[in-house]
């Protein structure tokens, strides 16, 4: 669905769009429960659950103790037996405390039991840098979880997709991990009213172009689009693909674009080595689209260090618009 074509679309923030999705789910499905730390009267560390507790009560908007492993496990057990929990990690970094339940239990139960069960679990992870919260509150760990068969991993970049992917995740019978960028929570966009879903596993072409393909995730989509405007003024037409889902990855959309442009730039905030862009690059290199490449693939990712506190350092270790411009210009050289 395109929000622009929808008469009842309104401008909402990314956080408001997520809250609206949870509101719709709580309203329409008694099996849905929200669980997380300080998601009740506090409204969530980033005010995403907001005032939902006042509408649905503490039995359905449940504050958990500070027990990430136990809380995640309770959500797994609840999903396994008939509820539809939406579990919020206060910061995605804290998922490290719960990896046992996410990786060994939620992801594998269906397989280990030979298909006898499904685990319809939704987990939300406020992720990314830019808040000055330093190394344990700023990571982008989507590649950790995307490495685990049995999980699905999505990274919405717009309010419309944040709502649509959450509602799609709730309809999905398997565990879906949603990485929400903290800096995007206040960003605004048109969001259709009512219930709709954004398909898991489908990328979106945010800007059409012919000279190079930029595959970006999450907040990097916006930086890539900003770069693309500048590039257009210089006569370079970049196609910007918002990957949206990291696992399963939309192979066809990426390959078709690379066949058209012959150049690939991957931009992602997670650590560059073995990150999402590594998989995108390998996917292209292993396919027939490789024959269409006119230049080596370029990746821009997070630096090989934890996220630092100092604001200038913090900016320096993740891709920014000037870096994307430099990489895109170098890559497009020879084509213009």
């Amino acid at each position: 669905m395109n929000a622009m074509d929808t008469p009842e679309a309104r401008e909402l923030s990314y956080a408001e769009a997520i809250r609206e999705a949870m509101d719709i789910a709580l309203e329409s499905d008694p099996r849905v429960v929200l669980m997380g730390e300080d998601i009740g009267v506090y409204g969530g560390a980033f005010q995403v659950t907001g005032d939902l507790v006042h509408k649905y009560g503490t039995d359905r908007v449940m504050d958990t103790p500070i027990s990430e492993l136990g809380g995640a496990g309770v959500a797994v057990g609840a999903a396994l037996t008939g509820l539809r929990p939406i579990f919020e990690f206060q910061f995605s970094d804290f998922a490290a405390l719960a990896m046992e339940q996410i990786v060994n239990q939620a992801a594998k139960l269906r397989y280990m039991l030979g298909g006898a069960v499904s685990v319809p679990l939704v987990m939300r992870f406020p992720a990314g840098s830019g808040t000055g919260a330093a190394a344990q509150h700023s990571q982008s760990i989507e590649a950790w979880l995307a490495h685990v068969p049995g999980l699905k991993v999505v990274q919405p970049s717009t309010p419309e997709d944040a709502k649509g992917l959450l509602l799609a995740a709730l309809e999905d019978p398997d565990p879906v991990m949603i990485f929400e960028h903290k800096i995007l929570y206040k960003s605004k966009g048109l969001v259709p009213a009512g219930h709709y879903t954004t398909p898991i596993g489908k990328a979106a072409i945010r800007r059409a172009g012919t000279d190079l393909t930029i595959v970006a995730t999450s907040i990097m989509v916006h930086k890539a689009l900003a770069a693309a405007e500048t590039l257009a003024a210089e006569g370079i037409e970049a196609e910007v693909i918002d990957l949206r889902t990291v696992r399963p990855m939309d192979r066809e959309t990426v390959l078709a674009s690379v066949r058209k442009t012959g150049r690939l730039l991957c931009v992602y905030e997670g650590v560059k080595t073995l990150g999402v862009g590594a998989e995108v690059s390998a996917m292209v290199a292993e396919s027939d689209a490789f024959d269409f490449l006119d230049a080596p693939i370029v990746r821009l990712g997070g630096a090989e260090c934890p996220i630092p506190y100092n604001p200038d350092l913090e900016k320096a270790v993740v891709p920014q618009v000037p870096g994307i411009l430099d990489a895109a210009r170098a890559l497009a050289k020879g084509r213009i």
């Binding site: 429960v33 039995d59 492993l69 136990g70 809380g71 995640a72 496990g73 309770v74 959500a75 797994v76 057990g77 609840a78 999903a79 396994l80 037996t81 008939g82 509820l83 929990p85 046992e100 339940q101 060994n104 239990q105």
Partner: peptide, 15 residues
Amino acid sequence: GGLPIAVGAALTAKR
């Protein structure tokens, strides 16, 4: 591994 999962199953029963 089963301890929190059991609590989740009990949460379902209660809800």
